[in-house]
Amino acid sequence: MPLIPSFHEIRFPTGIAFRSSGGPERKTEVVTLGSGRETRNQRWADSRRRYDAGYGVRSLVDMNAVIEFFEERRGKLFGFRWRDRTDDGSVPPGSEPGPLDQAIGTGDGVKTVFQLAKTYGSVHAPYVRQIAKPVEGSVRVAVAGTEMAEGIAVAVDPASGLVTFLPGHIPPDGAAITAGFRFDVPVRFDLDQLAIDLSAFEAGAIPSIPLVEILP
């Protein structure tokens, strides 16, 4: 019997994730010239996040929870949600999302679907990151500064991050569309075997449980 879809809309145990390590990774090619000067080339247009959940495993109860989660995901096979406490919203940690936080598009009087996004930086080289896994119920959307009611003016898909304007509420030409939200990172296990050494674990050694972001 086939196992579909390839992504499970479930979050990795939050208590373990809070004590994990990791962050964004980029791939830059650096070529050093004979003069000692260098040239740099960006190989990836988007960053990709990597985490290690092993740092969050502090007990056999935690380890059992990871094993259960790993088995249900079939190792690398199924993706899942991960909360990155250092970067999980349209605003900095400790603040509440508002409908004006992030620009996600400009109306043209015709387009009805817009992708949630978060912009990093504002002056030198802003980076726009697609947000595909918003937290359900956390998204607030505004058109030209006026908040739109979810379910009446807009519909938000928590599995894709797509914002759809409903009939009678299509953004007019030139109107700025903004949004605020909480979000998870889509990830998968980056291994198909959990190598657990109980003697080492009980002596304080931290198991390695690598996770890698699934880019949209």
Rank of each mutant, 00 (worst) to 15 (best):
I131E: 07
P167V: 13
M148P: 01
V154P: 01
E150T: 03
F165Y: 08
M148Q: 09
T178A: 06
K76V: 14
P172D: 05
G107E: 05
V139T: 02
S95F: 10
G94K: 08
Y127P: 15
P167T: 15
G94D: 03
G89I: 11
P167R: 14
A144L: 03
R85K: 14
M148G: 00
A176W: 10
R83I: 07
G180Q: 05
G145N: 02
T112D: 14
P172Q: 03
T164P: 00
V141H: 12
G109H: 06
V154N: 04
F78N: 12
I104K: 11
G105M: 07
I152M: 07
P92L: 03
G161H: 01
V123D: 08
P126G: 04
P134D: 00
R83G: 05
G180V: 05
A149I: 09
P134E: 00
P167W: 10
T119G: 03
V154L: 14
V110Y: 02
F78E: 07
R81G: 02
A175F: 04
A125R: 04
P93Q: 08
T86V: 07
V113N: 00
F80G: 14
G98V: 14
D87T: 04
V139G: 04
F80R: 15
H169W: 12
L166M: 14
Y120I: 15
S138C: 03
A103P: 15
A149L: 09
K133T: 06
A179N: 06
T86E: 13
E136Y: 03
T112H: 10
G109R: 05
A153I: 01
T86H: 15
Q102F: 12
Q102T: 12
P167E: 13
I104F: 12
S160G: 11
P93F: 04
G79W: 00
P99V: 14
G107C: 12
D87W: 15
L100E: 01
G89Q: 06
G79L: 01
A176S: 15
W82A: 06
L166T: 13
I170T: 14
G109M: 10
E96T: 14
V135T: 07
F165Q: 12
T178Q: 05
F165C: 12
V163C: 05
R129G: 10
P167G: 14
E150S: 01
P167D: 15
T106P: 15
P99C: 09
L166H: 09
P97Y: 03
P158I: 00
P172S: 04
